[in-house]
Amino acid sequence: MTYKERPDGRKFDESRKIEAKVGVIDNADGSASFKIGNTLAYAAVYGPRNLHPRFLQDPSKGILRCNYNMMPFSGSGDRIRPGGSRRSKEISLVTQKALLPVLNLDNYPNSVVDVFIEFPQTEAGSRCAGICAASMALADAGLEMKDLVSAVSVGRVDDQIVVDLDYAEEAYEDGPVADIPIAMMPSYDKITLLQMDGLIQKKDLQKALEMGKKSLKEIHEVQKKALKEKYQGEVK
């Protein structure tokens, strides 16, 4: 046992502080913000709307386009060059693939739903925060969904399995680290995104996933509460 305590004093199965809000961008058809620790994501959904150029249209169903973008000074390191990068393009793609299984766009042929995810500030776990925000924004846009999507990263730092790694843990140098972002449909216990950076034993991975599931249920509750809060106010 060499990794005894987390830098910010959390328990090993404890996520950072979570805040979520729905309806933060008036011009969008649906929007949400999701904050986990120092990582803050804003998601805006536009659509379904007309899709151009026409060769991208799918006559059998609507398509989903995701766009992940970190703002220039959102990280703790150097300025991030604005515009797309290889990294942001990949994360946009996995975000889209994580959200598609819950989304039903069969009723919107030839149209597109655009999701823009912006990060004013990041400190590890940004793709997970982005997916959480995006799924709330899609629900806010009134789209047909099977379930919400919740996401969190799990992994190991040295010999310890942990939930929701922060930057200090991702960059831990005195032992091996594995960072595993997972996204799930919480009502069905089905995984929609599973990536890994680093090395981990099979039994540790299973343990990490179990811990992640527990954490995801908590995140799901926060998402649910944020969505209901917006609409409950309108109903009462």
Binding site: D29, M145, K146
Partner: peptide
């Protein structure tokens, strides 16, 4: 439920009144 909506129970049918969407 597959959308954000208001529950409306009509006999034995449960439907949702949409609260958002284009």
């Amino acid at each position: 439920a597959s959308i954000v909506g208001l529950v409306s129970i009509d006999g034995r049918t449960i439907k949702l009144i949409p609260l958002s969407g284009r």
